[in-house]
Amino acid sequence: MMRWLSLACRLLVGGVFIWASLDKLAHPAGFATAIHHYRLVPYALLHPVALLLPAVELLAGLALVVGWQRRGAALLCALMLAVFIAGIGSALARGLDISCGCFHTDGGHAVGLDLLWRDVLLLAACLPPLLARRGGPGLDRDR
C-alpha cells in the first residue's frame, strides 16, 4: 500500500516541479525579476539563484517521476517547498502585491493564502517517497 502511495506522491510532486521549471529555465531574466519582488535574496545571489533553482527543480522532478534517488529528490523538493512557503508567508506578512513566480515568469498567480496551502500539501506529499521503505515502481532498487 505504501509503495503505491509513494508512487502517487512521486508523480504528483515530480510533475509539478518539472512543469514549474520549464518557463523559468527558458526565461531566467524574468524569473530573476520575480525572485527580486520578494525582496529576500541579495543582489549577489539573485542571478545565480535564478539560474540554479529551475535546474534543481527539473532534476528533482525528473528523479521523482522515474524513481531514481527518490529519497534525495523528495528531500530536495521538501526543502525547496519549505523555502517557498517561507517566502510566500513573508510576502503575505509584508503585504506585498506580487506574482508568485511559481510557474510563469510573466504574469501568473498572485501571492496568496491559496498558494501557501498548495505548497503545504505538496510538502506533505514529499513525505511518503522520502520515508517509505519501498518507493514504488522506478529505477531505484528499493522499489
Binding site: L51, V56, A73, L75, L76
Partner: peptide, 25 residues
C-alpha cells in the same frame, strides 16, 4: 537511516543541478 540516504542523494542531485545550470547558462 532513510534521512542519511536522502541527504547523500540530495547532495548528488544538487551537484547535477549545478552542472545542468552551468550548461544551460
Amino acid at each position: 537511516p532513510p534521512l542519511q540516504v536522502a541527504a547523500r542523494q540530495a547532495l548528488l542531485l544538487l551537484l547535477l543541478g549545478v552542472a545542468l545550470a552551468a550548461v544551460r547558462w
